[in-house]
Amino acid sequence: MLIQWFPGHMTKTKRMIEAHLKAVDVVAELLDARIPASSANPMVDELVQGKPRIVILNKADLADPKETDKWVSYYRRRDIPVVPMSVGNAKNKKKLLALIRETAAPVLAKWQRRGLKARSVRIMILGIPNVGKSSLINFLAGTAAARTANTPGHTRGKQWVRLSEGLDLLDTPGVLWPKFDDQTAALRLAATGAIAGDVFNPDEVVPVLLSSLAETAPQVLKEVYRIEDVHQDPQLLLEAAGRRRGCLLPGGAIDYDRAETVVLRDFRSGRLGRITLDPLPSEDRHENS
Rank of each mutant, 00 (worst) to 15 (best):
T216I: 05
P7H: 10
S38V: 06
I254M: 07
G115C: 07
F200C: 09
A186E: 07
T11P: 02
K93T: 07
P207C: 08
A144E: 12
V205L: 05
R78M: 07
G197L: 02
P178T: 13
K91L: 04
E239T: 14
L187D: 06
F200H: 13
A118W: 00
I54E: 06
V27N: 12
N130M: 06
R245T: 08
I80G: 09
I17A: 08
F6A: 10
A259S: 10
G251P: 05
L126R: 12
A23R: 14
W177I: 06
H154K: 14
M1I: 05
T184P: 03
A37N: 10
R162F: 00
G193L: 07
I195R: 12
L167S: 09
T192A: 04
D45A: 15
A28R: 10
M43S: 13
P152L: 10
K133W: 01
K95C: 03
D45N: 14
G197A: 08
I227H: 07
E239W: 00
P65R: 13
A23P: 05
R34M: 03
I123K: 09
F267H: 09
G153T: 10
T11E: 15
A104E: 08
R271G: 03
S120W: 00
I35A: 07
A60K: 10
T68K: 11
T103C: 05
R147D: 04
H20Q: 15
L47F: 01
V199P: 04
S282Y: 03
M10F: 00
V72K: 14
D278H: 05
A145R: 15
R271F: 01
D203R: 15
P173F: 02
D257M: 03
L140V: 07
R243W: 00
I54L: 14
H231M: 11
L237T: 09
V230R: 13
V72C: 12
N138P: 03
T184D: 15
T143L: 01
N89L: 00
A144Q: 15
S86F: 00
G127E: 09
V24M: 08
A104L: 04
T13S: 15
S134L: 04
E223V: 05
I128P: 05
Y256V: 14
I137L: 10
Y74W: 06
G142N: 11
K179V: 05
L140C: 06
K95E: 13
A185Y: 03
D284A: 12
K59D: 04
I35Q: 09
L272G: 10
A118K: 15
F6R: 15
A105N: 12
T103I: 05
I100N: 06
V131H: 08
L96I: 06
R274D: 06
A37M: 07
L97R: 14
A253I: 02
V131G: 10
L2S: 11
S289Q: 13
H20G: 06
R245Q: 13
S120N: 13
S164F: 00
K66P: 01
L62R: 14
R113P: 01
T148C: 02
I80D: 08
D255K: 13
S282Q: 14
D25M: 08
G8P: 07
W71Q: 11
V44C: 08
G197S: 11
H20R: 15
G251H: 05
D25T: 11
N130F: 01
S86K: 12
A141I: 07
S39D: 08
L169T: 12
K94C: 02
S282N: 08
A118T: 13
